[in-house]
Design a protein around this nucleic acid. Structure first.
Length: 524
RNA sequence: GCUCCCGUAGUCUAGUCCGGUCAAGGAUCCGGGGCCUUCGACCCCGUAACGCGGGUUCGAAUCCCGCCGGGAGCACCA
């Protein structure tokens, strides 16, 4: 058994490594394979290789964010393990006033799946499947499992908490069927009647008492408009669709366990054997407190820079920052199917990503808040210098950049060493003048020596040829600075390490002709 | 309040089902050192955990009981 588990655990890691190798390009030749610990995934009960059908069911009211990563990669993990299929089923029932499906997200979410590397084998829309739900409702009613309740929502809630029956609860199937037909025949307006499951008033869990199965809404749906007024609730719709779509295993977060009971209750009533359920626990990435409604609002108002704004922590934003989806996958899979409440810092994701990009990111010099420093006595032969693109990988080539005698230094960095001798990294040693350094006036420094000594090291950019750079940071603010001239040939989406600053990715948006090079900060 | 779930180092995880091989493994973070002219990488070293209390047993992270703590659900949302 122990051996079997060990083998099982070994598989995904190896597959991940293969996958990375097959990507080609610089990643294929990187010196070492990134290895990460994978959490445990139990076998799917009764699963047969090649016959597993899973379903992803996002609600289309926002793009997929980091939290959806678990949904995506847990499903994909099992798809790979069992050579199964993943159905993307848009959970687009009519929602509520606070939570409504919106048209643009159908395509955006499919794009997100693609981006994440979790391509669904088929796509369904719940809104196309409403008619097939009605016969199921009828069957449940005929089995005495449901009744039409006309209590106002507040009263319904009160009664549920108190375990009190509402007057209509005693309806027999015939009467309930009549009520149901009236619902379908537009006799009632929104909020005037619902179809409720008849569980047990003595049911100890108040959350489970006589849940609503169908309700009436006049809202227009982004895909089917006002074609339907009687809409199923999530639990009932899955009781239907998990069976009709042939789903073999339902994987969901543990906040949805009560939906399991609801589905089973319906299936038991109708004598159907449905698929088993598996759950994972809550995952919270500390820095990514995503309020979907706020993000949507800010994107729409233009306050955020689109769906890939770093503040949204959307999958798109991670990609834009240069955080690879394979890193996200490894990060997510490290949690396994744990039911624990996870509160993990983004640093863990960054560590995972660093393993993958450190070997391929070319090094570049970048200086923020530049202050000009003129060096007296600067050696003439150092007007240009050639530096390696990567300190550990000569095969990645080198670049030639402008040297002195005039430099930009990062003001806070340099000012901290005012009056001291410092080393301009990879170049020469200079003595900086004492503070203060008035703004707007070049600082006069003095050449001291060339040899590499253990002095504080400063990043520099030669003023003779520099490139203005704008860094979009994780909090949405911008950092202005200059980079070395080799950045002039930077390609969209290219990933660099700004030495002593961190990893960045060149933005894919076409740059303004005269504007700075736009990059997005990933992590240290 | 009711119902369910979860508690292994700062964080995440392996081990718990089937008690001994666990004086608890890995990752990350943190600290120290080495090395490459980065605050990054790599190498070496180090700190650090079985929520608490009982019980069963020769032996408990693992089984039993009782607490305590955390989370989720209690929508005509998903």
């Amino acid at each position: 058994m122990a051996v079997a588990v060990a083998e099982l655990r070994g598989v995904p890691v190896a597959e991940l490594a293969d996958r990375l190798d097959r990507l080609g390009g610089p990643e294929a030749s990187r010196p070492s394979v990134a290895r990460s610990a994978t959490g445990t995934f139990p076998d799917l009960p009764g699963a047969e290789r090649g016959k597993v059908v899973l379903r992803l069911a996002p609600f289309p009211n926002g793009v997929l964010h980091i939290g959806h990563g678990r949904l995506l990669y847990v499903h994909d993990h099992y798809r790979q393990q069992y050579d199964g299929r993943i159905l993307l089923v848009f959970d687009d029932t009519i929602g509520s006033d606070e939570k409504r499906a919106e048209p643009e997200f159908f395509d955006l979410i499919q794009g997100d799946c693609e981006l994440a590397g979790v391509r669904p084998d088929a796509v369904y829309y719940k809104s196309d499947r409403i008619p097939s739900h009605y016969p199921w409702a009828r069957r449940v009613i005929e089995h005495g499992g449901a009744y039409v309740c006309r209590c106002p929502p507040d009263l319904l809630r009160e009664n549920r908490a108190a375990g009190r029956a509402c007057p209509e609860r005693s309806q027999g199937p015939t009467e309930a069927l009549e009520g149901w037909e009236k619902m379908l025949a537009n006799v009632y307006g929104p909020g005037e009647a619902v179809l409720r499951l008849r569980t047990d008033l003595a049911e100890p869990d108040p959350a489970f008492r006589d849940r609503v199965l169908f309700r009436i809404s006049d809202q227009a749906h982004p895909r089917v408009g006002t074609k339907y007024r009687v809409w199923p609730m999530l639990e009932f719709s899955w009781a239907v669709d998990d069976v009709e779509l042939g789903v073999t295993h339902v994987l969901r977060g543990k906040e949805l366990v009560i939906e399991d009971r609801m589905q089973r209750f319906v299936w038991d009533l109708l004598g159907i054997r449905g698929p088993p359920f598996l759950h994972w626990g809550l995952l919270r990435v500390r820095e990514a407190k995503v309020a979907k409604s706020k993000a949507n609002r800010e994107v729409r108002s233009g306050a955020y820079d689109g769906w890939a704004d770093p503040r949204t922590w959307s999958l798109r934003s991670l990609d834009r920052r240069g955080i690879s989806m394979e890193s996200l996958r490894a990060f997510i899979l490290s949690f396994g199917m744990s039911l624990t409440d996870i509160d993990v810092p983004a640093e863990s994701l960054y560590a995972e990503n660093r393993k993958r990009i450190d070997a391929i990111a070319l090094r570049r010099a970048f200086v923020s808040a530049p202050v000009r420093v003129d060096v007296a006595g600067y050696p003439l032969d150092r007007g240009e210098v050639t530096l390696p693109n990567h300190p550990d990988r000569p095969e990645l080539g080198e670049r030639t950049v402008a040297g002195g005698p005039s430099f930009y230094l990062a003001r806070p960095d340099a000012e901290a060493h005012a009056g001291e001798e410092v080393r301009l990294k990879d170049l020469v040693n200079v003595r900086l003048p004492p503070a203060p350094w008035p703004a707007g006036i070049p600082v006069s420094a003095e050449f001291t020596s060339r040899e590499n000594r253990r002095l504080p090291r400063l990043q520099w950019v030669g003023t003779a040829d520099s490139v203005p750079v704008d860094v979009l940071q994780i909090d949405g603010t911008h950092l202005a600075g200059v980079g070395d001239r080799s950045l002039r040939t930077a390609l969209p989406r290219e990933i660099f390490q700004f030495e002593r600053v961190g990893f960045v990715r060149v933005d894919s948006a076409p740059p303004a002709p005269s504007g700075p090079l736009r990059v997005v900060y990933a992590h240290p």
